[in-house]
Design a binder for these strands. Structure first.
Lengths: 112, 112
DNA sequence: TCAAGTACTTGGCCATACATAGTACTTTTC
DNA sequence: GAAAAGTACTATGTATGGCCAAGTACTTGA
């Protein structure tokens, strides 16, 4: 058990929330998302993002269409389904509550 | 795949951070922690908390001593070790960064 | 003595993040 | 036009932590 491990664990679920949010703002493909996530210092590697997108698609939260590219192979452009929007709403609420709860605990100072 | 699942995943690691913080504020035993976590709406069950405490103790982040109770079996009162304090510091930083990163992404509004 | 309450333990299940290797197509370079 | 480099996506296996559920052990009260 080490700190790096906990840091990895902390991302779980949150990444899914962030990805849904990014897609909710307009059509994007995987590299777009990687760029934005990296810019926000939420470092993610391909091997994490692609399986996540596949999961979300299989769960009916995402759709995609192939779009030809001028430089390289065609790309999958993702959009949110209605179901995806509803899930995003719930996750937003969950995340807000989680942040609030954590704040409640960590803002208390030593009593002893 | 369902929302509940993601909600569970979101807790990962964060719980550990919260528990370390609670212990950092003074000696407590498991039921104390459960009460505080519940009060903050960070619902946790015994089967999650006890193994977590054992993990943290085995990792050298916590110590405990048995204390007799007036109503029931003796209790394990936990305190943080030096190592535990250092880990808590790092996790605080990680959590703050994670919240910040998530905020960067989710505060953007639709561009399309 | 036996039921109820409190505190802690244990084993198994599941989902996600990550590492790593691989496929497929396009453009560039010689 | 064949090899090399680049881009986009796929597949497999590992590790970890939260949760469920059942169980142990001690104390108190009827």
């Amino acid at each position: 058990m080490n700190v790096e491990n906990t840091q990895v664990q902390m991302r779980k679920g949150i990444l899914e929330y962030c990805v849904l949010h990014i897609i909710s703002r307009g059509e994007v493909y995987a590299s777009d998302m990687l760029d934005e996530l990296t810019a926000a210092k939420m470092i993610v590697v391909e091997g994490t993002l692609y399986p996540l997108l596949t999961r979300l698609k299989n769960a009916g939260l995402l759709e995609y269409k192939w779009v030809e590219s001028k430089s390289g192979p065609p790309r999958k452009y993702y959009t949110l389904t209605d179901k995806g929007s509803k899930v995003l709403e719930k996750l937003t609420k969950t995340w807000d509550e989680l942040v609030h709860s954590t704040q409640m605990i960590t803002s208390k100072s030593r009593t002893a």
